[in-house]
Design a protein around this nucleic acid. Sequence first.
DNA 1: ACGAAAGTTTACGTTTACGTAAACTTCATG
DNA 2: CATGAAGTTTACGTAAACGTAAACTTTCGT
Lengths: 131, 131
Amino acid sequence: MSKANVVTYSIGELAKEFDITTRSIRFYEDQGLILPTRNGQTRIYNQRDKVRLKLILRGKRLGFSLAETGRLFELYDADKSSATQLNTIMDLIAQKKNDLNQQLEDIQAVLVELTGLEKNCKDALITIEKK
Amino acid sequence: MSKANVVTYSIGELAKEFDITTRSIRFYEDQGLILPTRNGQTRIYNQRDKVRLKLILRGKRLGFSLAETGRLFELYDADKSSATQLNTIMDLIAQKKNDLNQQLEDIQAVLVELTGLEKNCKDALITIEKK
DNA sequence: ACGAAAGTTTACGTTTACGTAAACTTCATG
DNA sequence: CATGAAGTTTACGTAAACGTAAACTTTCGT
């Protein structure tokens, strides 16, 4: 009785929870990012599918394309028995980490600028109100 | 003679420097993000235009749409004489900062995961090589 | 049992951010 | 002065990520 009482979700539940449309969820499946099982026609999502959805949405917030996110999934699922495979994977990871560090810098730069502009506005507001 | 010797660029120069096509640069102008002056037909870009281009590309790396980047430009250029205007701007800035902080978190999370996966691979590689 | 709600497939429409091509004009230069 | 490089406009094409709609089937609450 180890697999008893497995948590599952309907497409509607997930759509509501993540505030996306069912259309999107089916589309992600179409692109091979999620692989729900079926109960007849109806899609059934498990915990893993839900986590993947979460990751997909996080990827989107970071500007990843679905294909990119898919490639990340492949990295996780990849066969870790071949040394050359492992090296390829590690190269890809290093590349991704580079990109992300660049993004970190970019974001921090924009944050600094926005904070500057914010202060700028604050000062202007104070000056106006003094009159 | 204060404006003598102003630095300018041709569309080709900028394209080469930023490694984008001239098509893209013209498109950004079409969307109102850059406003080069003209020498007859020919576009002439100054320092400000170049900075904007840089900002556009940074925005793209962050997943900003051109429209979004355009709105940020407007914030910078906006009239800072009206108090209500200033408050509106500051709200927008606060919103953007929120988004960016969310992105920061997202990136850091992914970086942590990738680093974990990386270690994972490293270990697997060592295990393989031991044999 | 039956109507509303939720799910399914199929397919065409839409937006964003350019690519690509055609058909000129302008300018430097061998 | 012709020719090739760089620039210009206009316009149609394209990929990604869904939206929207039609036309059905399945499921659930009363």
